[in-house]
Structure formats: structure tokens, C-alpha cells
């Protein structure tokens, strides 16, 4: 019991302590100015002193991330269902989707900004672009890999197409949808930050950029830290949704 506690908490903490020590050592040994690499205590101080600013800018980035992600779900899922169940649609769009997946969507950010301006709309569009593909591609793959026996069982009972979809095909595809959503939410944060980098007047990405341009590196690091917290938070939200939607899946730590 005690040794498990040490393993689960002690070792990760030791890892963090090691990194912090290495960080302090590099600052001290290299005699680096704060503007290049601030010491951890300065970053911590900036984080506390500018906490209100980080929260308000973080709130903007959080909204962009979540709304864009939800938009990707709302549009991606029905399209996945259509593509997976219609042979013509599948032949028309599935290769296209796979091909488009390899396009670096963030490279489209400047163009999206030209189209939609520097407000919320362009951020939503960029987040949607990066989150949409993993969701639709994984969902289509899940819907098309329903175990053959379950389909035959349903067929032998003369199940309707709707029954097959609701009771067999979709629940069987749910683990794939969740996998896609986890990739999508991670990309969504990146999409939001890129959108803010390219043109924005608010958000953590904007804060990071303006802090570095003012040589306020401790604040930039504090913003980076806030972004990591935000990323973990939205990922945990998706995991929570997974627990609610698919309580039958073994917990993520026990897979593989």
C-alpha cells in the first residue's frame, strides 16, 4: 500500500523536482538573463501576480477550443454516419477525407483569417478544421468495423436499419469515436493558439505573443503553463464524457 503511494505520487514528484532543479541549474550556470530564460520562481511569481489576466485570456481560449471541438462533433458525427452507410458517399468522400487528413490544416490559418477576420469566427473555423478530421475518420472506421456476427444476429431477427444502427453499429463504434475525440481535443487547443498567433487581440496565444514582444518572458512562460493546464483540463473533460457515455470500457489506465 505504502509502496504504491510512493510509486504513484513520489516518483512523478521526484521527476518534476529533477526538471526544476535542472532548470535552475541552467539559469545559474549559464548566468542567463531573465529575458532569455527566467528562473522557475520568477515564472511562478508572474503566474500569481497576473493570475486574473491569465484566467480572462484563458477563458477566451477555452471557449474557442470547446466551441470549435463541439462544432466538429456536431458536424462530423452525422457526416461519418452518412459516409459509413452509403456506398456512393463512401466512394466519393472517404478517400478524399483520408487525403485531406494529411494536409497541415494550421497552414490554412492565414487564409481563414482573411475570410473571417480576427474575431471568434476565424478561431472557431481553425479549431473546427483541425478537430473535424480525426473525429470523422475514426468514427467512419468504427462504424465500418462492426463485428460481422452481431450484424448477422440482427439480420436474422429482421432488425430494421435504424435498430441496427442504434443498438449495434453505433455502440460498437463508440470506442473509435472516443479515440477520435481525444485526438481532436488535443489538436483543438493547438488550433486555437495558432489562430490567436496569426491574428487576434485576446486569448492565451495572443498573450504569449505580446508578452514575448515586450520581453516579458516570465509572463510568456506563465501563459505557456496556463495553456498546458487548459489542455489537460479539456482532455479530462473528454475522458469524463467517455466515462459517462461508455462506462463499460475499461478505464484508460488499464488498456493496452
Amino acid at each position: 500500500m505504502m509502496s504504491r503511494l510512493v510509486a504513484q505520487i513520489g516518483y512523478p514528484l521526484a521527476g518534476v523536482a529533477f526538471i526544476l532543479a535542472a532548470w535552475v541549474f541552467v539559469c545559474w550556470a549559464g548566468n542567463l538573463p531573465t529575458v532569455v530564460l527566467p528562473t522557475p520562481d520568477k515564472v511562478f511569481y508572474a503566474f500569481i501576480a497576473r493570475f486574473d489576466l491569465l484566467v480572462s485570456e484563458g477563458w477566451v481560449t477555452l471557449k474557442e477550443t470547446l466551441y470549435g471541438f463541439l462544432l466538429a462533433l456536431v458536424i462530423g458525427l452525422p457526416m461519418a454516419v452518412a459516409v459509413a452507410n452509403s456506398r456512393p458517399l463512401n466512394l466519393m468522400f472517404y478517400p478524399l477525407l483520408i487525403g485531406l487528413q494529411s494536409v497541415p490544416k494550421v497552414a490554412l490559418a492565414p487564409i481563414v483569417l482573411v475570410w473571417l477576420g480576427t474575431g471568434m469566427e476565424s478561431k472557431l473555423a481553425i479549431v473546427w478544421l483541425v478537430a473535424f478530421f480525426p473525429i470523422i475518420v475514426d468514427t467512419v472506421a468504427g462504424l465500418r468495423s462492426t463485428p460481422r456476427e452481431l450484424l448477422e444476429l440482427a439480420d436474422s431477427l429482421r432488425a430494421s436499419r435504424l435498430q441496427i444502427f442504434l443498438k449495434v453499429q453505433f455502440p460498437a463504434a463508440l470506442p473509435f469515436v472516443i479515440t477520435g475525440a481525444k485526438v481532436a481535443i488535443t489538436l483543438a487547443v493547438i488550433g486555437a493558439v495558432i489562430g490567436e498567433f496569426v491574428g487576434s487581440s485576446e486569448g492565451l496565444g495572443f498573450l504569449l505573443l505580446s508578452a514575448t514582444s515586450q520581453l516579458d518572458t516570465p509572463l510568456a512562460f506563465a501563459a505557456l503553463f496556463a495553456l498546458s493546464v487548459l489542455g489537460m483540463f479539456v482532455y479530462l473533460l473528454v475522458e469524463l464524457a467517455e466515462r459517462l457515455a461508455a462506462p463499460w470500457l475499461p478505464p484508460p489506465s488499464q488498456r493496452h
Binding site: P147, E149, L150, E152, L153, S156, L157, R158, V168, P171, A172, L174, A246, W248, L249
Partner: peptide, 16 residues
């Protein structure tokens, strides 16, 4: 006919 029982080689239960 909708009136058969089917048992496959794998149990093919629904994990959910």
C-alpha cells in the same frame, strides 16, 4: 424469418 436463434463460434456478446 426472424424466428431463429444463432450461436456463433465466438460468443459475440455486446461489451456495452
Amino acid at each position: 424469418l426472424g424466428d431463429y436463434g444463432f450461436v456463433f463460434q465466438s460468443p459475440s456478446l455486446m461489451p456495452w
